[in-house]
Design a protein around this nucleic acid. Structure first.
Lengths: 229, 229
DNA sequence: ACATCACAGGTCCTCAGACAACCTGAGAGG
DNA sequence: CCTCTCAGGTTGTCTGAGGACCTGTGATGT
């Protein structure tokens, strides 16, 4: 047995835990200013550098934020639950509706901002989707999502890319199920290739209205299928 | 001076960002041992305390773990951090752009779906915003955000409500700063009350086009201010 | 009376140095 | 081959110092 587990944890971790409890426990609400480093050091009975490292750990966790000359402020009271996981628990219809709202606007932006590199990536993703048409369901869904991700990436907003990435797990789960249940790929001989090609073409041409319309039509159709289930 | 005389952001954050990139970029895979604190200090051109705080921030984010006497080890390469924290680090302009895309569509949806309870909540939020017009900046920003949250809530999609909630901390931080820096409330005698009233009115009447247009105009104006900073 | 400005105090930021606690691997000894 | 010892390197902690920055306060001028 490791005797090391009995030894007291580093002071920094004790201090971090203590401060975290003050925050999550509501003693210091959002927006509150924490006592100064010297005061905290005295209160906790540790050195100033130890307090600084504890505060830095909380900052890394997104609970506090330091402003030079002003103080350290609480910016969140919870470790912020995983939004992506919450999405997976939500109704797929609700998720898909929001995804549609975001992605249609992203496609319009992409048509305006896409670079040459974006255009090449779009073409490659479209080819990959065609190639996956004969593969298994999961691989096809992945390739399909990759095309949509490429469109979002072409909008040139990193926050947008991150946001779409949050949707991917939930989308993947829901779409694989949908494809299996309804056999969409059999209903549709070209596996939706025409719609995706039209989307990529519109973005490449820089036609925002067409890009938005084509994408919205495609997504609305899938959304209708989801509501049928 | 390895980092130059100009300090756009605290050295700790620069060091944290640099180390984070090494990890997320795959330069240091999971299980790898980072160079010693003294070595990192020399490499980054900063003091050992600064390196320690940067490492502590990464530890708080769950990327690395320090073992006394052994070294600092990578325990995850993915930012495993929550989406909301990532938003706070993103450029406020990018965040605001995405927020605009989402919220304008939400407003259109709200105009179609709002219930009587939604209408009452909207009116209450609008009144609260008026009352906060004479309060301090933070309270006013909170009341402003509450109106927008009420609009999003009226769209009747729980995923949308969650998504907007993720934006709130980043928005709050950015807007408080903006209000303080530019003194927007002084430029605008009615504190943007007319625009908000028009938005609430359009949603109440069920006019989707008007709701989307009014909101887009207001958000685009604020976005322009952000780009001026 | 109001607006503007300078300033002092408090706060965080960064560095340097010192010592303690601890882990790891190499080598001595059995 | 196994065990023990130990030296070197590493993180943990504290102290002291000075710089940079923010904010409220009071003096000043209009």
């Amino acid at each position: 047995m490791a005797l090391g587990t009995l030894r007291p944890s580093p002071l920094v971790e004790q201090a971090t835990q203590h401060l975290r409890e003050q925050i999550t426990g509501g003693h210091w609400p959002v927006g509150a200013r924490l006592p100064g480093e010297n005061a905290l050091a005295k209160t906790l009975g540790v050195g100033r550098s130890t307090v600084r490292e504890a505060l830095r750990a909380l900052a890394g966790a997104g609970l506090v934020q330091a402003r030079q000359g002003a103080g350290v402020f609480v910016i969140a009271t919870e470790p912020a639950e995983d939004w992506s996981a919450r999405l997976r628990r939500s109704a797929i219809g609700d998720v898909y509706e929001v995804r549609m709202m975001v992605e249609v606007q992203a496609a319009r932006l992409a048509a305006v901002r896409r670079t040459d590199a974006d255009v090449a990536a779009l073409a490659a993703a479209l080819d990959a989707r065609r190639a996956a048409g004969s593969g298994d369901d999961a691989a096809f869904v992945d390739a399909d999502i990759a095309v949509h991700a490429a469109v979002v990436a072409a909008a040139g907003n990193p926050v947008l890319v991150d946001l779409f990435a949050e949707f991917v797990p939930a989308l993947r789960q829901g779409l694989v199920e949908l494809v299996r249940l309804l056999g969409l790929r059999e209903d549709d001989p070209d596996h939706g290739d025409a719609a995706h090609a039209a989307l990529v073409d519109a973005v490449t041409r820089g036609d925002a209205d067409a890009a938005g319309a084509v994408l919205e039509a495609e997504l609305r159709q899938t959304l209708a299928h989801l509501h049928r289930v």
